[in-house]
């Protein structure tokens, strides 16, 4: 099927298909194409990450208004001034925390719940915190409907982390902050990795890796990311 026809079909189908029900072939194909064209082509090779991106139904995490664009190479607005990240960025962030099947991962900024779902495909448990109540409630329901039973959603201030569940093997912060909360650094295991975007949400942001080793904290610039799609020079 020509890709140009797919968006139209999605809009039509979206009103008739139950959330956790069978997925039309168009979505599955679009997802495969997304992984091949947008993610693998840009250097993501972790098989588990790729499989997770092929599995999670991204179209069920975007507002109906943007359903036709769910698998496009870019972020989308989800309301409340927030976005669901570009698929490549979700894959990249997931790969950078080097997820293992026994990992316990903390996510700050649930948003639509998409990043949590991708992580949940790979790791043992995901703890995710959302500060905007409406977003958190919707994400919790969505993840429950999609049977992500290893994801726990808390509506709270991410500043405090999730001390009862910590320490964590990895922490993924999806929203930029003017500081890195000290409590999050405390809740990161020694040798653990935290990934966080720095900069204005609509500017080109820098993804930073924060590594904690023997109580010393070091940062590393990983990748500039931005609101709308672009092709890196080395693509």
């Amino acid at each position: 099927m020509a890709l140009s026809l797919v968006p139209f079909l999605w809009v039509v189908l979206s009103f008739t298909i139950p959330l956790a029900g069978a997925q039309p072939e168009a979505f599955v194909q679009a997802r495969k194409q997304m992984v091949r064209m947008q993610i693998q082509a840009r250097g993501i090779h972790d098989q588990e990450v790729l499989e997770a991106m092929r599995t999670v139904p991204r179209h069920q995490f975007v507002p109906l208004d943007y359903l036709a664009e769910a698998y496009r190479d870019g972020p989308l607005p989800i309301g409340y001034g927030q976005t669901i990240s570009q698929p490549y960025i979700v894959a990249y962030m997931t790969e950078q925390v080097r997820p293992q099947s026994d990992f316990k991962v903390l996510e700050i900024g649930t948003g639509s719940g998409y990043q949590a779902a991708v992580l949940a495909e790979i790791v043992d448990s995901v703890y995710t915190i959302e500060i905007v109540e409406a977003l958190g409630q919707a994400a919790r329901q969505r993840l429950r409907d999609l049977n992500y039973n290893n994801v726990r959603v808390k509506i709270a201030d991410g500043y405090y982390g999730w001390a009862e569940a910590g320490p964590f093997d990895a922490i993924v912060v999806t929203a930029a902050a003017n500081y890195i909360p000290p409590l999050l650094i405390e809740q990161l295991k020694d040798g653990g990795r935290m990934i966080i975007p720095v900069g204005s949400p609509f500017q080109v942001q820098m993804l930073k890796l924060i590594e904690k080793k023997q109580d010393k904290v070091r940062t590393k610039n990983l990748l500039p990311v931005r609101f709308v799609p672009f092709t890196r020079q080395d693509d």
């Binding site: 500081y179 890195i180 000290p182 940062t219």
Partner: peptide, 18 residues
């Protein structure tokens, strides 16, 4: 708001409360 904090570029060695 109890969640509105500001510590621009806070040192990663800081362990106190914000």
């Amino acid at each position: 708001s109890p969640a509105l904090r500001y510590a621009p570029g806070l040192s990663l060695s800081y362990r106190g409360n914000i």
